[in-house]
Amino acid sequence: MKLAVLYSTMVLQMKKSFVRPMFRFCLLANPILNTILLYEMFRTAGEESFLAYVVLGAGLMGLWSCICFSSAGDINRERYSGTLALIFATPASFPLIILGKIIGNTLLSLLSLLISLVTAVLLFRVPLSIGSPLLFLAALAGTVTCFVVISSVIACLLTLSRKTELYMNCLEIPIILLCGFVFPVSILPPAVQALSRALSPTYAIELLRMSLYGVTDLRLFWEKFGIMLAITALYAILSGLLYRRIDRRVRIAATLEVA
């Protein structure tokens, strides 16, 4: 039964997201435009691996935008369409429903990585070479997990407030900058880097980049992988605790619906 809830929510979410023009723009047009923009920026910057910064950067920016405007924004859409209260009051676990939505969105949003890659290959003849393909796949799986969990924390917090749109707009760019989507976090000021190191996507992106270049230090790769999983696990615990609290808070604060 739980699998049916998770699966049907994933499918519903994919259908609902894909029919929204804004989501389609984030998913399809954004990666193309970002790839062009980043390519032009990196072309004369001496960076040789366009895959590591242009394709990955543009793809991840698209992925994150989709997550911000869909996983998070969907709470608000459900609230305004009167379905948030309905799904909340069913016997199915609310966190499971939210998880289904997030997994559905994240899987669909992975398309932005592919679009970015196709754009770079077709428009700029960027060579498609992955130094450590298997480790790249492992890093990609880790990235998806980390994005799913971080989205879950955000979605949970946004259930508590009606100012969802404001918060999701505030989240998009800072995460892109802090986690080094398009530049290494090492160029950030040390105080800001400390913040970056507390965010699991920072490690996910570094792992993807390492595997694209080709991993020369396996120990370092798995060390970073471990840190990413540990931080992700912390987020998951936080998310679980928040969902327990949220179940009571939303009914006290009356934020399930629009007043």
Partner: peptide, 13 residues
């Protein structure tokens, strides 16, 4: 599809 979805949420077989 609406009814299928909600029947899943109501844990119907």
């Amino acid at each position: 599809d609406n009814l299928h979805y909600f029947s899943n949420l109501y844990l119907l077989s």
